[in-house]
Simulated scan of single mutants.
Amino acid sequence: MPERQRSDARRNYARILAVAEDEVAAQGADASLEAIARTAGVGSATVRRHFPTRRALLEAVSRSRVDALADRARELAEEKDSRDALLEWLGEVVAYCVSARGLAAALAYDGVEAAPGHEDTCSALLEEAAGPLLHRAVQDGAVAAGTTVADLITLIVGITLATANHPDPAGAADRLFRMSVTGLSPSV
């Protein structure tokens, strides 16, 4: 939200965001923009002025969680075992995506252009923060060369979205993530 906005616009933004956080937590990425507007006491046009796309709204709702994940990636970059550090961080991203309904949708690479001024900051922030973790794991031979953070985020998003309606989404997502890490072959 630009600081140069009028005070009433800043208040509307904060109120819409607070309502959206609750609505996305309850309904997920498909939370009704109209219900958010009604509950915030503003018109749909006001919601769309602040958040021109659903993705822009999800990005804003997810921002504090993504900031925490980025901080965690930087913290884990200091760990001795690069593979364990990367896998620990990725496991935390999976857990966040499962618990923070709407985060996976905010991170999804779906080819949809972001609205001007509402770039895909969540994905960019995670890519920047996780880059050193992945780079070190690749250098250590713990991860295949050519693997990108975008690949890993896409994998996590896919797992999270695929398990969203499972009776135990966290357990199913973690199991599928661990399976993707170890592969399908039995250990020898």
Rank of each mutant, 00 (worst) to 15 (best):
D110F: 05
L33P: 01
E78T: 03
P132K: 09
M1E: 11
P2W: 00
V94N: 09
T121K: 09
A105H: 09
L176G: 04
V157A: 02
H166C: 08
L87T: 07
A144K: 15
P116D: 06
A29S: 13
G91W: 00
E59I: 01
E88V: 09
R4F: 10
W89I: 04
Y109E: 13
I159N: 09
A164F: 01
G141T: 04
N165Q: 12
E119L: 03
V181W: 06
R4Q: 14
L58R: 09
I153F: 00
R101E: 06
F177Y: 14
A29P: 01
A18D: 15
T53F: 00
G117D: 08
V47F: 01
A25I: 00
R65D: 15
T160L: 05
L107F: 05
V47R: 07
A100K: 13
E78N: 13
C122R: 07
A25G: 13
V112I: 04
A106D: 11
V188C: 05
S44I: 03
T46E: 05
L76C: 02
H166W: 02
L107G: 10
R63K: 11
A104F: 02
R83G: 07
A26N: 11
R74E: 15
P186D: 09
G111E: 07
A20N: 05
R4T: 04
A108M: 00
A114P: 08
L184Q: 08
L69T: 01
A104R: 10
A114T: 03
P116Y: 08
S82N: 08
H135G: 12
D22W: 03
S99W: 01
A31I: 05
R54K: 15
T39S: 14
G28V: 01
V42K: 06
R83T: 01
R48K: 12
D140P: 02
R4E: 12
N165K: 06
W89E: 10
I16A: 03
Q27R: 15
P2H: 15
L125F: 02
E3N: 14
N12Q: 15
A29Q: 10
A73H: 12
L87Y: 08
Q5R: 14
D84W: 02
G158A: 10
R101L: 05
W89A: 07
V138R: 10
A170C: 07
L33A: 06
T39E: 09
V93S: 07
P169C: 07
V24R: 08
A25W: 03
V143I: 11
A9L: 10
G146I: 05
E3Y: 06
V42C: 06
V143S: 03
P52H: 10
I159Y: 02
T154G: 14
F51G: 03
